[in-house]
Amino acid sequence: VMMPGTAVSDPDDDSLTINGEISIVTEVEAPAHAENLSTIYSGWRFRSDETQAFQMDDFDNPGMIGVENAMVNWETVDGTEGKSCESCHGAPEDMAGVRAVYPKWNEDKGKVTTLEMEVNNCRETRMGAEKWKYTGGDMTDMVALISSVSRGMPVDVAIDGPAKATWEQGKELYYTRTGQLELSCANCHEDSYGMMIRADHLSQGQINGFPTYRLKNTKLNSVHARFKGCVRDTRAETYKPGSPEFVALELYVATRGNGLSVEGPSVRN
C-alpha cells in the first residue's frame, strides 16, 4: 500500500510591484490558523511571466477597465433617494483599507457580510436603487474599484468574536470532499499546490487578488463565481453565489491569506 506523496511547492521567485510604486507581498509566513501551511503565496506567483506582466502596470491590466466603469457608477445618482456612492462616501480613495478587512461581522445585520452585500445594502436601503446581481458586471467592477484603492495593504480579516462560528463553518466546507470526484478545496489548494493538474498550475487558491481578470473568459471574476467553478469541477452541486455557505467559505479562505497584500483587480489565466 502506497502513501500519498507530499506536495512539492514551486511558485516562482518573481516579485511584484505595480506601476513601479505599489509593492505587493506575494509570499509571507502563514498565519497560525492556516494550520497545514508554512508559507502563503499569492496566486500571481504560480502564473507564467506573460500573465504576470499584465498586472505590473495598470495600462496593461485589462481589469482596470472594470475599475474605470465603476468610477462612472460611483458618481452616478441612482434610485429614489437621488444619491450616488459619492454623495456619502466621497472619493473612492476614501474606501482605502476596506477591502483588506472583508468579509467582516456586521453588527446591524447580525451576520458576516461581504463587500458585495454591503454594496447592495447601500443601493437598496440607502439609495432606493435596485440591487445588482451578486456576480454581475456592475457589482464585480465596483468591488474591483474598492479593492484597487487598498492595493498593497495587508489582508487582515478577523476570525474571532462573533465571526468565529461562520469561520468554523467555512473551514468545514474547505475540507469537505464534494461531488463524484470527491475533492475538497484543500485537496487541490493545500495538498497539491505547485503541481500541475492537467494544464493548470495549482496555486493555494488565495483570494487576495480578487476580483481577478481571467484571460480565459476575458472578464473580471468575483470570488463566489470562482468558488462555484471549482466546486462544479468536482462534479458536485454547487452553492449559490451570495449564499451563507459561500460567505462562510469566503471568510475562511480570506483569513488563510492574512498577511498577503490586497492585489485586486489581478490578472490570472
Binding site: 461531488g179 463524484q180 462555484k228 462544479r232 469541477d233 458536485a236
Partner: peptide, 14 residues
C-alpha cells in the same frame, strides 16, 4: 456515498 453529488459538470444537483 457522495456529498452533494452533481449532475456531471453542470453544477446542478444530481
Amino acid at each position: 456515498g457522495f456529498i452533494r453529488l452533481g449532475d456531471a459538470y453542470t453544477g446542478e444537483a444530481h
